[in-house]
């Protein structure tokens, strides 16, 4: 999980600065937290039952982050520094990488670097491409529907398990727009990850 690990000092600096952050800075802080949280959820899969206390606390933190990101309007520019920005990422390859990730984490605690992720452009903040699907998702959907939709998949209870294309709906349900089956699949995976 090399790319996920960031230097502590980066995070501390961000945290110390949070009171005078620009909206973009705050957003990237939230993004970092979100990535850490999702990574924790993924990594907690193992041969032993994970700590429910830890699981619930991470889940609640994710919910808070989701609410905060929903409340904050997404800035059009500049692009998020944490995103890798691969435009050619398809959701299905991302899902594939999650499934592989799950598979490896179930079988072996040491997750190898995901081979699906192509090397991204040089990035100061994230020096190495990593298998976290968030960047891919956000880079794909940041442009059109905004981040609100992205984080709805965390709230698994909000998702209908309907494979039929959904009729056009006002937010917060428009996250299924790019292909509802894919979102449902992702949702299912999130359920596996987050659900107990």
């Amino acid at each position: 999980m090399g790319g996920l690990k960031r230097k502590h000092s980066d995070l501390e600096e961000e945290e110390e600065e949070k009171w005078h952050w620009s909206p973009a800075g705050l957003r990237s802080y939230q993004q970092a937290l979100l990535r850490i949280s999702l990574d924790k959820v993924q990594r907690s899969l193992g041969p032993r039952a994970p700590s429910l206390r830890r699981h619930v606390l991470i889940h609640n933190t994710l919910q808070q982050l989701q609410a905060a990101i929903r409340l904050a309007p997404a800035p059009a520019l500049p692009p998020e520094p944490l995103f890798l920005g691969e435009e050619d990422f398809s959701l299905s390859t991302t899902i594939g990488s999650i499934l592989r990730e799950l598979d490896t984490s179930m079988g072996d605690l040491a997750s190898p670097q995901n081979p699906v992720v192509p090397p991204g452009p040089p990035d100061d903040v994230v020096p190495q491409a990593d298998p976290v699907f968030l960047e891919a998702l956000s880079s794909r959907y940041l442009g059109d529907t905004g981040l609100d939709d992205l984080f709805l998949d965390i709230d698994t209870s909000a998702v209908e398990k309907d494979s039929a294309p959904l009729p056009p709906q006002p937010p917060p349900s428009l996250f299924c727009a790019p292909g509802s089956w894919e979102w449902n699949e992702l949702d299912h995976i999130m359920e596996i990850i987050l659900g107990s």
Binding site: H8, L11, E14, E15, I36, K40, R54, L57
Partner: peptide, 14 residues
């Protein structure tokens, strides 16, 4: 208190 993010990342916060 100012290190909570790192402590969260390292799981020490739990």
């Amino acid at each position: 208190r100012s290190k909570l993010c790192s402590l969260y990342e390292s799981d020490c916060i739990f």
